[in-house]
C-alpha cells in the first residue's frame, strides 16, 4: 500500500550544468541528480542531490542554505543536508541533499519546476556562488477528472479511515517469557551453588569441594606450594567429615565417624604420613615421593565417591 518514503534519485537523470559563469571564482561545476522526472503524485517526496565541485578550501556557507519549510504554496522543503566529500583530484567535492515534497493536485499531467537555488561557498578570503539549477518534473493526477460521486451518490468517494490498532505487546511478552525462563534457571543454579534445597546434600560433601580445589591447584602450577595447598584442602575435608580436628593418630576416630571410609584405611593413613612429612618434616619432596599428586587425586576421587555413598 505504501511506497518508500522518498523516491530514490535515479542516476538516469543527471543534469550536467556547464557552469562557466559560476566558475569565475572557485566553483567548477554543479551536477544535479533527482528521481525519475515523471509519474510523481501529490504528496510524493523528491530527493535532489547536487554535487558541487569547487576549488580546495571552499566550504558551503550554512547561512546560504534554504531553510526547511514551504517554498511555494504547493512545494515544501522537508530537509537540507550538506555532506563534505573531501578533496579528490585537486578539487573539493560537496553534496547538497534537498528533500522536497510536492502537494500539487493536478487535473491533468503537468510540468512543474522546483526553483533554482544559489549557494555561497567561502574559503575564508574569497567567496563563490554555486547555482543549483531548477528541476522540472511531470506530476500526474490520481483520479479521473470527473470522478465525483461515489457509487451511491453520497458525495465524492473518500478512502476509509485508518482504524485505531491495539498496542503491540510482543516486546513485553518476549521480555516476560525470557526473564520468566531465566529466573527459575538462575535460582536453581544459585541453589546448587550454595547447597540449598534440593542440593543440600552437596553442601555436606567436603571432599568433593576439596578434590576440586586440589585439582585446580595441581593443574595450575603443580609445584611444592600447590601440593601443600592440596593437602591442606583435604585436611579441612577430613576435619569437616569427622566433625573435629583430625590428625594422623585420629584415623580410627575418623573411621568411626564415617564408616564408609573404612575400605580406604591404608590410603588414608598414607595421606597422613605424607602430610606429616610435608608440614612437620618440612620435606615436601619426600611427601610427594610417598604420595604423588596423581595418587592424591585418585584418593580424593575415591573419598568423594565414598562420601557420596554415605549420603
Amino acid at each position: 500500500m505504501r511506497t518508500p518514503a522518498a523516491l530514490v534519485p535515479a542516476l538516469a537523470l543527471i543534469l550536467l550544468v556547464a557552469a562557466p559563469a559560476a566558475a569565475a571564482a572557485g566553483v567548477r561545476s554543479v551536477t544535479l541528480a533527482g528521481p525519475r522526472p515523471f509519474g510523481l503524485f501529490i504528496g510524493d517526496a523528491i530527493l535532489l542531490e547536487a554535487d558541487i565541485v569547487a576549488d580546495p578550501g571552499f566550504r558551503v556557507m550554512t547561512a546560504s542554505l534554504p531553510r526547511p519549510g514551504p517554498v511555494t504554496y504547493w512545494l515544501d522543503l522537508r530537509s537540507v543536508a550538506v555532506e563534505d566529500g573531501g578533496v579528490r583530484d585537486g578539487a573539493g567535492h560537496h553534496r547538497v541533499r534537498l528533500e522536497y515534497q510536492t502537494f500539487y493536485a493536478p487535473l491533468e499531467p503537468r510540468a512543474l519546476d522546483i526553483p533554482s537555488l544559489t549557494l555561497t561557498l567561502n574559503d575564508g578570503a574569497r567567496s563563490a556562488e554555486a547555482v543549483i539549477p531548477a528541476w522540472t518534473f511531470l506530476t500526474s493526477p490520481l483520479r479521473e477528472l470527473r470522478s465525483g460521486a461515489g457509487g451511491d451518490g453520497g458525495g465524492p468517494y473518500l478512502r476509509p479511515d485508518v482504524p485505531p490498532r491495539p498496542v503491540d505487546g510482543t516486546v513485553g511478552m518476549l521480555a516476560a517469557a525470557g526473564s520468566g525462563t531465566a529466573l527459575p534457571l538462575l535460582l536453581a543454579l544459585n541453589a546448587w551453588h550454595r547447597g540449598w534445597w534440593p542440593f543440600r546434600a552437596r553442601a555436606r560433601r567436603p571432599f568433593m569441594r576439596a578434590l576440586r580445589v586440589a585439582r585446580l591447584d595441581l593443574q595450575m602450577t603443580g609445584d611444592a606450594g600447590a601440593y601443600r595447598a592440596a593437602l591442606l584442602a583435604f585436611h579441612r575435608a577430613f576435619d569437616a567429615a569427622a566433625g573435629r580436628r583430625v590428625l594422623g593418630d585420629d584415623v580410627p576416630v575418623l573411621l568411626d565417624a564415617v564408616p564408609a571410609f573404612r575400605p580406604l584405611r591404608a590410603d588414608i593413613e598414607r595421606f597422613f604420613e605424607a602430610s606429616r612429612l610435608a608440614f612437620f618434616g618440612a620435606d615436601t619432596a619426600a611427601a610427594i615421593d610417598r604420595l604423588p599428586p596423581a595418587a592424591l587425586l585418585a584418593l580424593g576421587r575415591r573419598l568423594t565417591a565414598a562420601e557420596r555413598e554415605a549420603g
Binding site: 500500500m1 511506497t3 501529490i42 504528496g43 504554496y73 483520479r143 478512502r159
Partner: peptide, 24 residues
Amino acid sequence: LALDPGFWDAKHNLDVAMRLVRDF
C-alpha cells in the same frame, strides 16, 4: 503526508479536498 510521504489514502483524499477548494 509530511510524516509519511507514502500514505496513499491520504494522497487520494487530499486530492478530493483539493478539488473542492483549490490552492492558489
